[in-house]
Design a protein around this nucleic acid. Structure first.
Lengths: 164, 164
DNA sequence: CGATAGACGCAATGATTTTGCTTTAAAGTG
DNA sequence: CACTTTAAAGCAAAATCATTGCGTCTATCG
């Protein structure tokens, strides 16, 4: 990919670099999309535990900001699309979601150990992860760290009544 | 697509059915993915205005249930993925989001005309559409109408404080 | 009316995808 | 340890697909 670019990548090229016949790759993955889907999941796996800042609010905010940063980048968006793409049974997409859930679970249980009240993991996914991912995929405009911070603040705070 | 199936569809096949040369299609769309992306956006366009039931809660609930139903179906999921796929500049994905936003806007302005208090469109997207789409794409399990109803109920109600 | 730009068909070219057959390597079995 | 079984890979041919240059047609504009 670093040589010919993401778009010009073909199965024969990958095979050549792997010192392998194209048919080997076709038999194992079926097509380039499924191969790239597996690669994408690998690249999207977090390589470090979420930073610990001492409070649930700061931990979750820092995580959300970094998550948005990585996923909204051109590389992150490309990996996410690749992961969704060649994924007939949805297992790769599920894995991506599990990565985020694991990180959040860790943050939540740290907070629980300190005695802080925490929302449920599903709530954090619905209120923080889902809006971030939805906007990254469908509305790439006007996404910034402030938005991530606001989502976290709102999930941790009793929300205000419906307005206007 | 109805003859050979979604996966076996190729540009030459489409060209043959269109009574056209493959090169015509390649020139206009570049590849099959971009063609399917345009088809998907077309299929995802709502063909009717959201039903009116008399209250914001019932309108939004009915809309969310139908939205989930359509988007979570195998066909809906396939179209959504296709729309995201062959979409270099994100305009097709943006269009899909705009469809939902338009429908919701209509529901909200109907409610506003009746004097009901309504949340903002962005809030509804964050709290209803985004969770639904996130789970459809990344976690296809345990999705049902009750979940959609709950999301709508929560966005319309002052939420309870963080628990546990 | 004539000119120009855009789009398509045709056909050739090159690349990719797919498949049958064979070989190799590894794992299990008596 | 020898033998069978299974899975995976190489090889090579065939089929299919993607890409491009060139000529033709149509419509739009001056």
């Amino acid at each position: 990919m670093s040589e010919v670019g993401r778009d010009a990548l073909t199965v024969p090229l990958v095979a050549q670099h792997a010192g392998v016949t194209p048919s080997t790759i076709y038999r194992r993955w079926g097509n380039l999309q499924e191969l790239l889907s597996d690669v994408a999941v690998e690249r999207l796996r977090p390589d470090t535990a979420p930073e610990a800042h001492g409070t649930l609010a700061s931990d979750l905010t820092a995580w959300a900001e970094q998550f948005l940063d990585e996923m909204a980048s051109p590389a992150g968006r490309a990996y996410t699309r690749d992961a969704l793409l060649g994924d007939p049974d949805g297992s790769n997409a599920g894995q991506c979601s599990a990565y985020a859930a694991d990180q959040i679970n860790l943050i939540l249980s740290r907070a629980a150990e300190r005695g802080e009240k925490t929302p449920g993991i599903e709530t954090v996914i619905d209120r923080v992860v889902a809006p971030l991912m939805y906007r990254i995929l469908f509305r790439p405009d006007r996404l910034d760290a402030a938005y991530a911070r606001r989502l976290v603040a709102e999930v941790l705070r009793p929300a205000q009544p419906v307005t206007s």
